[in-house]
Design a protein around this nucleic acid. Structure first.
Length: 467
DNA sequence: ATAGGGTTAG
């Protein structure tokens, strides 16, 4: 009895050190405890494994399992679930599966949590069929039954993998079985509908959420607000109305006390900056900081984007220093925003250098940043350099092509533009309508009417073959 | 111990 109580205290102590990221101290407490006759148990080690997963790395966490066994304690399902979750966070599906199988071989039966996380991992790595297989296992295996999280992961995963229709169907099916959706389920579905551009349907589900007796929360509002800002072209009357509706939602959020974190602020500031409403954006950012909301990586990125649009590179660099002092690492957004900012400020050399630096750091290729530089080079009159870069990249997207095609047209090089336009469409990608129009108009106005006609039918054919 | 919202380019 005494021992159990002490172990419980030990575990509380370990948990608080782990939470404070002081893993060395946590380890030291375990050793001191053993010396005093207080033995660690599986909870002690599970806490440690989870902390290593979060703050150090999966390998370090896994090595705790050896020490655990040496101490005569067997890992359990929670130990393995922590490892699977860590692999999922990093999108390492192979690793995740390895842990899952190892657990099986050790005679530890996976529970619904293990299956849920594994399913999530498959969705995150773009394998919806495999994820669906896991879902069927959960439904069919007699020792398992789905939890609410199972359905949320499923609906979210379907949306994120381009199957919003399926997600909506599943949602309705579950309702018909008497399943009462939780606020998270509603939010997941609303977000999926918004991302697919189905603002109307999203609003419908929002209404159902209200009728179900749930209250929309900060997540719901932020999701809808972002969708309003993004919806349609801002040239259309509808788009403009939605944009204003977005701003109204933000005011509503403020009055309801839903602007307690950086999410809503970053959404509205991002939208305002995109529209060139710099002063309003700046005001909101100041408001957020005055409220004492701590800046996280996304807030810094939003702020850097704002400063770049103001042309204030000095303030940008100051912020980057501040981030470094705080131990916050730049992510791909920071780099992209910076590279684009440098291009827009006319310092294309610095932008290229930063792009090289990024590649050198091995942070993976960043197509958005490359697209910014290509466009920047064109705008700086270096269209041949841009073409050279364009040819070196293996994976191009609709942005790469649209931008290159538009800039070639601006330079009067309609034949090259026409070739690129076709390879874009034949690659199964869409292209900006204005880019297509620029090529056709350009060919016609420079006397190549026949070429234009031929191109038009080739475009039609390429589009037919897509389906 | 798993699930939801924010920041980038034409």
């Amino acid at each position: 009895m005494f021992c159990t109580l002490s172990t419980r205290l030990l575990n509380i102590c370990i948990a608080s050190f782990c939470k404070a990221r002081q893993l060395q101290k946590a380890e030291a407490v375990i050793i001191d405890g053993i010396r005093l006759g207080v033995l660690p148990d599986v909870v002690t080690y599970n806490t440690l494994v989870d902390a290593y997963c979060r703050f150090v790395g999966i390998d370090a966490a896994y090595s705790v399992l050896h020490r655990m066994r040496e101490a005569g304690i067997s890992p359990d399902v929670i130990t393995y679930n922590s490892l699977i979750a860590a692999a999922t966070r990093k999108c390492l599906i192979t690793r995740s599966l390895e842990f899952f199988n190892e657990m099986f071989q050790m005679g530890i039966p996976p529970d619904v949590w293990s299956y849920n996380i594994l399913m999530h991992c498959f969705f995150k790595s773009g394998q919806p069929e495999e994820a669906y297989g896991v879902f069927l296992d959960i439904i069919n295996l007699s020792n398992l039954s789905p939890s609410p999280a199972t359905f949320n992961i499923m609906i979210n995963g379907l949306c994120k993998n381009g199957c919003t229709h399926g997600a909506l169907k599943l949602f309705r099916y579950l309702q018909s079985l008497g399943f009462v959706p939780h606020i998270v389920t509603y939010n997941v579905l609303i977000n999926g509908l918004c991302k697919s551009g189905w603002l109307g349907k999203a609003m419908e589900i929002l209404e159902e959420l209200r009728e179900s007796g749930n209250m929309p929360n900060a997540v719901t509002y932020t999701t809808i607000m972002k969708c309003c800002f993004r919806s349609r072209s801002f040239r259309s009357r509808n788009g403009s109305r939605n944009y204003e509706r977005g701003l109204e939602i933000f005011s509503e959020m403020k009055s309801k006390g839903y602007t307690f974190d950086a999410f809503a602020y970053c959404t509205v500031v991002g939208a305002l900056v995109r529209r060139g409403r710099i002063e309003e954006a700046s005001d909101y950012m100041k408001q957020m900081m005055r409220k004492g909301i701590a800046l996280d990586i996304v807030s810094y990125n939003t702020l850097i984007n704002l400063y770049c649009r103001e042309g204030n590179l000095e303030a940008t660099y100051k912020l980057l220093d501040e981030m470094e002092e705080r131990g916050l690492e730049c992510d791909k957004y920071t780099h992209t925003i910076l590279i684009d900012g440098l291009c827009k400020a006319g310092n294309i050399e610095a932008a290229c250098r930063h792009l090289e630096y990024m590649n050198m750091m091995g942070s993976g290729s960043n197509l958005v940043a490359i697209n910014c530089v290509i466009d920047g080079l064109c705008k700086a009159g270096e269209i041949d350099k841009a073409m050279k870069m364009f040819k070196t990249i293996k994976l191009k997207d609709s942005f790469t092509y649209s931008s290159m095609v538009l800039n070639l047209c601006r330079a009067g090089r309609f034949h090259t533009a026409s070739k690129l336009l076709l390879s874009c469409l034949r690659g199964g990608m869409g292209i900006l309508r204005s880019a297509r129009k620029a090529v056709l108009d350009g060919l016609r106005s420079s006397g190549f009417t026949g070429e234009a006609r031929k191109l038009k039918s080739k475009i039609r054919l390429a589009q037919i073959l897509r389906y």
